[in-house]
């Protein structure tokens, strides 16, 4: 699951994008992992993440029971409780933070909790270094993104990529990201609602609606 590594943007654009995730390893530390993952998500939730996920569902969920009145009454706030209760299998759990301070405070609590699961931080290289230093730990391993090699120009433009690649599994289509950009630019949808609409399509909970909202607002000023 490399669903957080290849987010499009420069280092500065990850200032509000910090993903902390826990992953059990089969045969090594997966015994009792379901309870530990619930504990992990519980600790993360105390630090007000903008999204969390358990590999099946996220704080922003689609609905099969929509009717026309949804335009006026749909909630755009994260709903993390069902995500924690919905951990039923050994998989990855993730929390997305919109500031380094929140991420560092969460990591400090995770160090104290000593869950024994592998904990990873996905953000800019320098951002992760800073968080590790703030918590007084040394990084164990690092995996660098070398970006996309697109020799045949198959990818959409950079503004669309910044939005769509926040779901690394490809569940947020480029066309949907473009549609939301256009709708916000035309004043047909406010950036908050458009960002949450995109987040609903990412079942892992790795999508960052705060960064998406910022990018959508920036799109209206161009």
């Amino acid at each position: 699951m490399t669903n957080t590594l290849h987010r499009y943007g420069d280092a500065a654009s990850f200032e509000d994008d910090y993903i902390i995730f826990a992953i059990p390893c089969k045969g090594k530390n997966d015994e009792g992992a379901v309870d530990k993952l619930k504990l992990f998500l519980g600790i993360c939730t105390k630090h007000r993440p903008v999204n969390i996920g358990n590999s099946s569902t996220s704080s922003f969920r689609p609905s099969s029971g929509l009717e026309p009145s949804v335009h006026w009454k749909r909630r755009h706030e994260p709903e993390p409780r069902d995500v924690i209760e919905g951990v039923h299998r050994t998989a990855t759990a993730a929390a997305v933070f919109d500031s380094a301070d929140k991420a560092a405070a969460c990591l400090a609590d995770l160090i104290d909790a000593d869950l024994g699961l592998s904990i990873n931080v996905s953000t800019s290289v320098e951002g992760a270094k800073r968080i590790a230093a703030d918590c007084g730990i040394s990084r164990h391993s690092v995996e660098y993104s070398l970006g996309f090699d697109d020799p045949h120009d198959k990818l959409p433009d950079s503004r669309v990529l910044e939005l769509s690649t926040m779901c690394g599994h490809g569940m947020v289509s480029a066309n949907m990201a473009k549609k939301m950009l256009d709708m916000v630019q035309e004043g047909r949808r406010d950036p908050t609602a458009a960002a949450v609409t995109l987040a609903r399509f990412c079942p892992c909970g790795a999508y960052n609606p705060v960064r998406a909202e910022r990018l959508l607002r920036a799109g209206t000023s161009t």
Binding site: S118, A128, K129, H140, G147
Partner: peptide, 21 residues
């Protein structure tokens, strides 16, 4: 000439806890 702006960082908090392992 690669731009290494983003990375996934393992913080080294994992350990082997399974009884058999």
């Amino acid at each position: 000439d690669y731009d290494v702006a983003r990375a996934k960082t393992n913080m080294g908090l994992g350990r082997v806890t399974n009884t058999a392992a």
